[in-house]
Amino acid sequence: MSERRSLWEYANPRKFMGLSGTILPWITIAGGVLLVVGLIWGFFFTPDDYRQGSTVKIIYLHVPSALMAINAWFMMLVASLIWLIRRHHVSALAARAAAPVGVAMTIIALVTGAIWGQPMWGTWWVWDPRLTSFLILFLFYLGYVALWAAVENDDTAADLTSVTCIVGSVFAVLSRYAVNFWNQGLHQGASLSLDPEENVADIFYYPLLVTIAAFVLIFVALVLLRTRTEIRARQLRAYMARERMQ
């Protein structure tokens, strides 16, 4: 083993448990505070939109959850690649831990989208490309979670779900293009983009950034917590197996 410290050391379960145990409370608190601040700021200290009225304020939940729904999948993809290439157990467990959080984010995005769409478009659901893509993403999450649950051997499950995640990512992107082609929709363009012309007004923009940061921190906290729980659960299983063998 070389003396040089590297990032991969934190993939060691012992290191991971130590570090994550230290930072978890801080991330949780920071995420909670930012969420409260961002929502209060957004709900009570920004004006109503001249066209959409107060309904626009659901943006503070809708946009962050939608972003995290996609980023959670992306994180799972990266973690899956790391598992397949370097075989760090923590990586596979982090991917597993992120999936249900991603499911929750997707549901929040879909529900808030429907609630927002009702007064805007006059209907709870339209087969708009963006909405449809999220629905398809939701289905991909379900398959991924179901596969983890169905395979008994942990390493086999990690391998199979990793390959599924990679193949699924390709098909998810393909589905996005297919859906775009299939129906040009009602949904407005991206709320956030580098092009200032497309962006929402500054007054909505800053509290939105705060809630997005809050969602990121809450996501990280949940994933860390779930990964730690899974590591502990595996330790327990290993000790029980050891007792049986003696």
Binding site: L139, G143, V167, G168, F171, S175, W182
Partner: peptide
């Protein structure tokens, strides 16, 4: 697992 993967082909 398979049905979501069928989406682009079906569309």
């Amino acid at each position: 697992l398979v049905l979501p993967l069928y989406v682009p082909t079906l569309i």
